[in-house]
Amino acid sequence: MLAPYAAVVSARYRNLLQYRAAAFAGFVTQLFWGSIRLMILAAFYAAADGPQPMNLVEVVAYVWLGQALLGMLPWNTDADFKEQIASGAVAYDLLRPLDLYGYWYARTLAFRTAATTLRAIPMVVFAMLVLPALGLAEWALPVPSFPALAGFLVAITAAALLSTSITVLAHISMLWTLSGEGVDRILPSFVTILSGMIVPLPLFPDWMQPFLSWQPFRGLCDVPYRIYSGNIPIAEAAGEIAFTLAWTVVIVWAGRLVLSCGVRRLVVQGG
């Protein structure tokens, strides 16, 4: 029953693997950003007086995981999809004997995760194994406890589902805006700051924390990364993952609703 969706995912992976230089470039880029960010944060921590909501080791894990999984953030839209909308070829998707939202979700899930898996592995290997070998153990991605790792894997899967649901929503919005230009300009800033990618969320001023802890983007980075480092104790992990999944359900529901309006509009206007 899932075969057509699986085929979509596999085709997408094949396509992406051809870009070997891109994969390498992505790795070097992420490595660079991670190093810069760590040096900046470490310089701040060096002058810190008193305990902070996260210790430096937790921050290090947060930064490396962020670099490894950057591509999983819903910060852009699929160029192929954009092309399809702009050219009107999207009408063919309406003809497929599949649930349209499900089909787009599968496609987007592959888009969101294919490049990321390819990039995350060398990044994690480097940060966890190569850095200590180079004598930079204090900057390495720490090896998590087993429960923390298990919690992280569940949380990051939930994050992928959440991220995909947000990206699908952005894709659907193009049925109205066509160019996707607006979405592409606005989305990255909100996603990167609110997910914790720019600055780990716990380091924001305390008075902002109530707001930050309830918004959906937190489930993308902040939740899984802090579960990994143990900053969120494993006992609280289930609740945090449920938080991520709850937002996913809400956004999928909203996406289905908006899509049905969009399709009606497409049918009425004749594409």
Partner: peptide, 27 residues
């Protein structure tokens, strides 16, 4: 749209710097 988007992006980036100084005081 593009100009406004860039302006917003840059401001958000700067917000990150501000947040760190708010917590740590100096660099």
């Amino acid at each position: 749209l593009n100009s406004a988007g860039q302006f917003a992006n840059s401001c958000i980036e700067f917000l990150g710097i501000w947040a760190l100084f708010d917590r740590f005081g100096h660099l």
